[in-house]
């Protein structure tokens, strides 16, 4: 009787297992397999090339530009979104915010609910060199020397895109941290108050240590998000000018669908997978360590 029950478990789990395998595990394995071939999407012809796609990637200038841009994005996002987001959260949860707390919370959160494509177009116009808001503003302020073709200059373009993402997501991270702050028992603050702690001391000695878990998790989310970056770049520059804003996601897309190198694209995908997978393992480790 017991045996039969166990068998039943398996059968009930079967649909989920099959679905996950078909849509997640099998494609990952297949993708690795495809990365060993030279192929395109419109023929059945596949030429086995072994690991030469990987060899090519590690000699590919654009791959390193992409990787570098992803890393820029990750580092800046951690500093701005997690760092500045925490500061915002602490300020909004402190007495300073007062009655405007909810108002500001919504204001900061709002950008993250707008679709990335819409935000991308919006910022595309802000950055426009001739009629864009940013350059007009700089000229009005008498700072003509600081005007740029923000998305057209290879040294600046990627940072212009990164800046947009910070604007969009800082509020989202802030909300996650606010939730964590609200879970901190009020008694801790009360006893600190009795001991004569000021606001800054309370933030550093009570708030930050207590939201450590959330900080780590949001950092990991941000890093993984940085390596999956695609839409922002695709909408604003499509990787140009001359590949200076290419990130792994857009480079993968371009190689697959513009340059007909499916196998090469699959190899790039494997590398993205390895990076995000390692970060995820890190995340799992961290969240396990958080069990009090």
């Amino acid at each position: 009787m017991k045996r039969l029950k166990q068998k039943n478990y398996l059968i009930y789990m079967l649909p989920a297992i099959i679905l996950i395998s078909v849509f997640v595990y099998i494609p990952i394995i297949q993708n690795f397999y495809y990365s060993l071939f030279r192929m395109n999407s419109y023929t059945d012809e596949m030429v086995f090339v072994g690991l030469s796609n990987y060899k090519k990637i590690f000699a590919d200038e654009i791959f390193y530009i992409s990787l570098k841009n992803n890393i820029y994005y990750a580092v800046i996002s951690i500093v701005c979104q997690v760092g500045f987001g925490t500061v915002l959260a602490i300020l909004l949860e402190s007495k300073l915010a007062g009655k405007l707390r909810v108002f500001f919370r919504n204001i900061y959160f709002l950008p993250s609910v707008i679709s990335v494509t819409a935000v991308g177009l919006l910022w595309y116009f802000i950055y426009n060199p001739n009629m864009g808001m940013l350059n007009s503003l700089l000229i009005k302020m008498g700072l003509e020397n600081f005007t740029h073709a923000w998305l057209g200059e290879p040294n600046i373009a990627i940072f212009a895109i990164i800046a947009m993402s910070q604007w969009q997501y800082v509020g989202y991270i802030m909300i996650l941290i606010i939730v964590a702050i609200q879970k901190i028992p009020i008694e801790l603050y009360e006893s600190a108050q009795i001991d004569g702690a000021n606001g800054l001391q309370k933030a550093l000695k009570i708030t930050i240590p207590n939201i450590k878990e959330t900080l780590l998790v949001t950092s990991v989310i941000t890093v993984i998000g940085s390596f999956k970056l695609f839409t922002e770049v695709y909408v604003m520059t499509s990787g140009g000018p001359y590949n200076s804003t290419q990130v792994l996601g857009t480079y993968l897309y371009n190689t697959a669908f513009m340059y007909d190198e499916m196998g090469y694209a699959a190899a790039i995908a494997v590398i993205i997978f390895v990076i995000t997978f390692s970060v995820s393992i890190l995340q799992i480790k961290i969240s396990n360590s958080g069990k009090e």
């Binding site: 426009n128 001739n130 923000w150 200059e153 000018p241």
Partner: peptide
Amino acid sequence: ANANAIKHDE
């Protein structure tokens, strides 16, 4: 100026 930063239609 900035030809690389503007679109053809623009």
